[in-house]
Design a protein around this nucleic acid. Structure first.
Length: 434
RNA sequence: CGGGGUGUAGCUCAGUAUGGUUAGAGUACUUGGUUUGGGACCAAGGGGCCGAAGGUUCGAGUCCUUUCACCCCGACCA
């Protein structure tokens, strides 16, 4: 993409109501804009990031044998009346009426719809297991949406549901999904922990949350520095009072505290804050029994499906990447999430030699399937650098003054370091780094 | 849902206590010129139904009523 042909409305100032780094920088960088309480538009850069994350989620799930489907976003209210969630979810479900005065709900989650889809279509143990998922818009009419993409009302979520003939097989799938989720978050380049959690209102036995570690996270965790152990404080402290006190503390306050208990590996435990980006539950037969979704087992007996459910907050991940990876100048995207991996900056667009090297390199990198931006705008050097840091390209190749002595620079966004490279070696050098 | 706050230019905000020329600044934008390695400088421009509706008044951004929207603290949710 050429900067001169792009639509990236960056801004010096963030709206005054943005408090989180991800909220500020995603707006200032021209990734998203707010459209209403808890409602966001994704502009070109934001859309690219969202799609990159979605693609990785899909790829790993498909590798693990899951099948992608797409359920309708608008759902008849009868579905929710039958499961009883009309009552339990209450006002979080946004209800709308069509021209015939029929009531509908904008999907906040899809257990019911997915069970209905499978019910009477899968009727034999021979067709099990089955793991269906979708990556689709959800709407939850939160009492108080806040923190930008972290807690929107409309958001993009991957929700998966698996169906099994036995509890053992359901647990096998649950474990497989845990491994798959780890692969996904690792590929995204995130520092995360899997923690045991209360299963809350959704019910079921086993439940694990995946948290991206970030100072601004809403959840308080205990994690081991040496191994990958982590737990939500609600599972390891007993008194409600103690949990509430800890929960109210900021990241900095928590660092002052020490924990008596030690990890099973022997190392010390520390408090951290986390952003919940994934959650997996063992559901058992809760929904299948309630909605009478049955299959026949080896002995011809009718049984409700054993189920599990798996969620990933895809749009929340966009924000979580930045919460974990930013500095005072802006975003620092990981290689897997960057809208463009390389930004070629032509320092002075009136300098023919700079332009010609920039164009040549841009064409070569594009041919090599590198996601590359060519900054051919008319701005000055300082402006372009600030802009590049705000947007957060992992690498910016600066083609500028030193080209006269045959040199260009590779600026590493994360390290904030520049490396001088001979102009005729820049292609091979950048390809090495990627 | 309880409590508090804010709506004025694309963005950040003055102006509202005490009603009174033509509604301001910075930034962004357009044009011209000078610049050209860390968000440049000079000059000239364009851009507003002062959130909306009603009312008081000779006169309303400013006072009154209603309403809509957004934000913050909490509760809730995950």
């Amino acid at each position: 993409m050429r900067r001169s042909r792009s639509f990236i409305p960056t801004a010096k100032e963030a709206p005054s109501d943005a408090t989180l780094p991800s909220h500020k920088f995603l707006i200032r960088g021209g990734f998203i804009n707010q459209h209403g309480a808890g409602l966001y538009n994704f502009m070109p850069l934001g859309k690219i990031v969202l799609e990159k994350i979605r693609a990785i989620v899909k790829e790993e799930l498909d590798n693990a044998g899951c099948l992608e489907v797409q359920l309708s976003f608008v759902t008849p209210i009868g579905l929710w009346e039958r499961s009883g969630r009309c009552e339990t979810m209450g006002k979080e479900m946004l209800r709308i009426k069509d021209r015939h005065e029929n009531e509908f709900v904008l999907s906040p989650t899809n257990e019911e719809a997915m069970v209905e889809l499978v019910k009477n279509r899968v009727t034999s143990y021979k067709d099990l297991p089955l793991n269906l998922y979708q990556i689709n818009t959800k709407f939850r009419d939160e009492a108080r949406p806040r923190y930008g993409l972290m807690r929107g009302r409309e958001f993009l979520m991957k929700d998966g549901y698996s169906f099994h003939s036995s509890q053992e097989d359901m647990i096998r799938e649950f474990d497989l999904m845990q491994v798959t989720y780890k692969k996904i978050f690792t590929r995204l380049g995130l520092d995360f922990r899997v923690v045991a959690a209360d299963s809350g209102a959704i019910g079921g036995e086993g439940s694990k949350e995946f948290h991206v570690l970030a100072n601004s996270g809403e959840d308080t965790l205990v994690v081991c520095e040496a191994c990958d152990y982590g737990a939500n404080i609600e599972t390891i402290f007993e008194s409600e009072e103690e949990i509430d006190t800890l929960r109210a503390k900021s990241y900095d306050e928590l660092q002052e505290l020490s924990i008596e208990k030690r990890c099973s590996c022997g190392a010390e435990l520390h408090f951290k804050k986390g952003i919940e980006v994934g959650h997996i539950f063992q559901l058992g037969t809760k929904y299948s029994a309630a909605l009478e979704a049955h299959f026949s087992d080896e002995n011809g007996r009718t049984k409700p499906f054993e189920m599990a459910t798996f969620g990933i907050g895809v749009s929340r991940l966009v924000a979580a990447v930045i919460e974990q990876n930013h500095d005072e100048n802006g975003c620092i995207w990981t290689k897997a999430t960057a809208p463009y991996l390389v930004n070629i900056m032509i320092s002075n667009i009136k300098d023919a030699a700079q332009v010609s090297l920039g164009e040549e390199l841009y064409a070569k990198l594009k041919d090599s399937n590198v996601d590359v931006m060519l900054d051919d705008s008319k701005e000055r050097f300082g402006f372009k650098m600030k802009d590049a840091e705000l947007i957060g390209f992992p690498y910016t190749i600066v083609i500028g003054k030193e080209l006269e002595s045959g040199l260009v620079q590779i600026f590493n966004r994360r390290a904030k370091e520049s490396l001088s490279v001979k102009a005729d070696e820049i292609y091979s050098k950048i390809m090495e780094l990627l």
